[in-house]
Design a protein around this nucleic acid. Structure first.
Lengths: 176, 176
DNA sequence: GAGATATGTCAATAAGGCTGACGTATATGG
DNA sequence: CCATATACGTCAGCCTTATTGACATATCTC
């Protein structure tokens, strides 16, 4: 999983900019650590995806479909915050290669419910495994007592308006 | 600062994949938290950059030049892990808009030493300020005693081979 | 002086985004 | 039952950021 390049609409954010930063120096170390940590975090899946001629976009789609079986197109667009045109190309490839299956909605036949196939689930698990391994190894470098703090820290890095929605989606996600 | 899309060369990495993951479930929560945290972490600078018709590539270049005054082209390419052709377009724009200044090397006149101008420094500081503000706010959600653990965790997320080099560059960086 | 090195540049290509416009199937409300 | 709204699909064109390959130029080093 890798962060999408959100272009175009930048989102209406009100005056969020710190004026003078009264309190001391900028945390350059943490800024750069986060940058490099994320860079390497996504490099593991990249190697696997390259074997299949997939990119990070495929990873994101497969990941969230796998974690949220029956997800509709609209819901997926809302998570990924991309346009349906962008999604379509990637999704078509994942469906064409039988990693994802599309089922017409029962209640509402306009909707498309997305499901990972067996091989889709396997690939998603393989991708999550390499990222999970990196996380596990990193946690080993930190006292177990501090593990909840790391989760709290990452949670607090998420936009407050998004936080609740993100958390509910993460926690409910029962499919491993 | 935002992670580059490393395409093409994926880097020679030896069999790094966890075989069966004997030890239990995958840390899906942390995987997704890291994803969303990073997404929002880069969204703040994006808004500012958009005002100037710059992209994330400009941010990365400006950031590292500002933090490492006198950086050469080759060193910058090594940090960013992109090709000189990719760098060139972005760098030309930053030089053309007078955010970055190029000085021919004294000892070796083939080299180009990059420096942020006054306005380059101001922009870099403004970008770092919004990211720093998010970090500071997130740290406030965590006991101060756990702050070193967060730094240790992020450090351990970086590839072991890269870690030493990255850390030395981060710590020495005296320019805030 | 020959060759290596640091940088610059031209050209073609790809991935992954975007906007705008339009089409189709299905639901839903009056 | 018909009009409108909704969910999705698709065509066309564009942008940014990256890639590879080839070649040019200046400068350093042996």
């Amino acid at each position: 999983m890798e962060s999408p390049t959100v272009r175009g609409k930048v989102g209406a954010q009100v005056d969020n900019e710190p004026k003078a930063r009264a309190g001391g120096a900028l945390p350059y170390e943490l800024i750069e650590l986060f940058f490099f940590a994320y860079r390497d975090f996504v490099s593991d899946p990249d190697r696997i995806l390259a074997e299949l001629d997939f990119g990070r976009a495929h990873h994101r789609v497969l990941h969230f479909v796998n974690r949220n079986p029956g997800l509709t197109i609209a819901e997926l667009l809302d998570i990924l915050k991309i346009t349906k045109q962008s999604l379509n190309r990637v999704l078509k490839e994942l469906v064409g290669t039988a990693f994802i299956e599309v089922r017409t909605g029962q209640a509402d036949r306009r909707q498309r419910h997305l499901h990972a196939t067996a091989s889709g689930h396997a690939l998603a698990a393989r991708l999550a495994a390499v990222q999970g391994e990196r996380i596990r190894q990193a946690l080993n470098n930190v006292p177990a007592a501090a593990h909840p703090a790391i989760e709290a820290y990452l949670t607090a890095m998420i936009d407050p308006q998004e936080r609740k929605q993100v958390l509910s989606r993460i926690r409910k996600g029962p499919v491993g």
